[in-house]
Amino acid sequence: MKLFMGFLLVSGIGWILDLVSYITLTQVFGLPAAYGNFISSMIGVTYVWAVALKRVFNRGGANGFTFLPIYWGYQTLSGLAYSMLISFVIVELISFKVDQVVTLPAAVLAKLLVTPANLLTNFMFMAILTKFMSANADGKV
């Protein structure tokens, strides 16, 4: 539980980076939600990897760079899947006119709705992946 709480804190900051870039891409630049989600997600997950690897999972060094492409590969597949889910949720929100009741744009509301599942799957993957890595040599967390 302690690992998850640490990951939750780091991911919260990564999620803010993700959400701000998502809103900017979709609402300011008019990028379709699926594309905006993919790009913004990669910004957030790269931050989470860099910080959580050392601070939460006590892993890092050259090891971190070796496993980063694997994490990006997972995040690419995950990002595509969650982007498709977000697109589906947007259609449903509009069809049920939820976007008229809630003051958030449907694209932003859909992103908020899928975030908990995304957080959980990201934590599970990173926890498994870091099991294959050696601990930090300095032992600092």
Score class of each variant (00 low, 15 high):
residue 96 F to C: 07
residue 21 S to W: 02
residue 117 A to K: 05
residue 61 G to P: 05
residue 121 T to H: 12
residue 67 F to S: 00
residue 86 I to G: 07
residue 18 D to P: 01
residue 128 I to M: 07
residue 43 I to C: 10
residue 118 N to I: 00
residue 20 V to A: 12
residue 139 G to D: 02
residue 76 T to R: 06
residue 70 I to M: 08
residue 92 E to I: 14
residue 47 Y to D: 09
residue 83 S to E: 04
residue 39 I to H: 03
residue 72 W to S: 01
residue 121 T to P: 06
residue 4 F to V: 10
residue 99 D to L: 07
residue 58 N to V: 02
residue 85 L to G: 10
residue 50 A to Q: 09
residue 2 K to N: 14
residue 134 S to I: 09
residue 14 G to V: 05
residue 11 S to D: 14
residue 77 L to T: 14
residue 59 R to E: 03
residue 111 K to N: 12
residue 80 L to I: 15
residue 21 S to D: 01
residue 127 A to G: 06
residue 94 I to L: 08
residue 44 G to A: 07
residue 7 F to N: 00
residue 111 K to H: 14
residue 52 A to R: 02
residue 57 F to Q: 02
residue 131 K to I: 09
residue 141 V to W: 03
residue 11 S to T: 13
residue 88 F to S: 12
residue 69 P to M: 04
residue 6 G to H: 07
residue 72 W to N: 05
residue 10 V to T: 08
residue 85 L to F: 14
residue 55 R to L: 06
residue 14 G to F: 08
residue 41 S to A: 15
residue 133 M to L: 14
residue 124 M to H: 03
residue 125 F to A: 09
residue 15 W to C: 03
residue 136 N to I: 01
residue 102 V to I: 15
residue 80 L to V: 15
residue 14 G to L: 06
residue 87 S to P: 07
residue 114 V to S: 09
residue 41 S to W: 14
residue 73 G to M: 09
residue 123 F to I: 01
residue 80 L to R: 11
residue 74 Y to R: 06
residue 82 Y to M: 11
residue 75 Q to T: 03
residue 10 V to Y: 05
residue 5 M to S: 14
residue 141 V to K: 15
residue 73 G to N: 11
residue 88 F to Y: 13
residue 26 T to N: 03
residue 110 A to Q: 12
residue 70 I to W: 10
residue 34 A to W: 10
residue 33 A to R: 05
residue 54 K to P: 00
residue 40 S to W: 11
residue 4 F to A: 13
residue 126 M to W: 02
residue 100 Q to I: 09
residue 129 L to T: 06
residue 12 G to L: 08
residue 68 L to Y: 12
residue 125 F to H: 02
residue 47 Y to A: 13
residue 62 A to R: 04
residue 53 L to T: 02
residue 57 F to P: 04
residue 129 L to Q: 09
residue 42 M to R: 11
residue 105 P to Y: 13
residue 28 V to L: 12
residue 75 Q to D: 07
residue 19 L to H: 00
residue 34 A to E: 12
residue 110 A to H: 06
residue 42 M to Q: 15
residue 102 V to G: 06
residue 113 L to E: 07
residue 40 S to K: 04
residue 5 M to L: 15
